[in-house]
Amino acid sequence: MQELKENPYKKFNLAFALMVIVPFLVFLYLLTNKLFDFNILVGNIGFILFLTLFLSLCGFYIGFTILKNIFDKILIYAAQAKHSDQLKSTFVATVSHELKNPLASIKINIYNIFAGFIGQVNIEQKNVLGLCQSIVERMINLVNGLLDLHKIEAGVADMQRNELNLAEISGRQVNELQVLADKKNVRIIKEFLDEGLSVWGDEGKLSRAIINLLDNGIKFTPENGAVTLKIYPDDQFAKIECSDTGPGIPDDKIGLLFNKFERLNAAKEGTGLGLAITKDIVEMHRGRISVESQVGKGSKFIIILPRDLRATQR
């Protein structure tokens, strides 16, 4: 498809001038001629009228041609945008089908072998299968993360906005991760200072943002540590703070935290997409996310969302 780099609107002023200002000048000339009987173009009045008419028609024709060119380019832009959207949708559908189906097949077949449904499996074989299972889980997380990111970056069109009680949706995320925290002997402390605090947003997406922060907190907190989820109102905003007693983040790494595929600790499992997705979700809700951290003491992620329901509506 034709590559378009110039802005078609740039020529709009010229077209406007040719189509409007030239006939206006002709009109002005005729008016001064009539009112003040002043004619700078002394001679055959018929010839002068013919000339002015010719000039106006030329101006109109050139202006019309430029406008037509502008609209043609707009149509090409629209076609390109539509094509690009179709490519994106095809990409998502292909990724969904071509990657998720094989992953589902690998996952269930490994499970069957591991469980001994196909025959006896010794401990060493189980260990290898366990490794395969964790690799498959990593790939599944990566594919899901990429698709989520794609969906989020595709825009806010599919946001399902409702009035959400933050304590309720946060409580559900805590329950969801309680087993994981118990396994690591990490305490999750809930500090919901206003049980009725609500924002206007997409429940699925905000839940995802909260669970990402909690999951990160649990992942990086050593045994017997704690992750605290605090919710409170602050003037026109609702604040969600997730703090942990993990190793903390060095100052020079904090700027990289929200980059896609950035994994500051390669020893910990993860795709490096969780915080990028969280940031996108928060920004879709007209909010902000920041982090405070001290090496050796822990980190605190702070989400600030506007409480005014209209502020997040578009």
Binding site: N101, P102, A104, S105, I108, N109, N112, F117
Partner: peptide, 15 residues
Amino acid sequence: DTKELVLGLATLLKA
């Protein structure tokens, strides 16, 4: 239509 998945499901369910 994913035969490998059907195989896995059949093994799991038959078990």
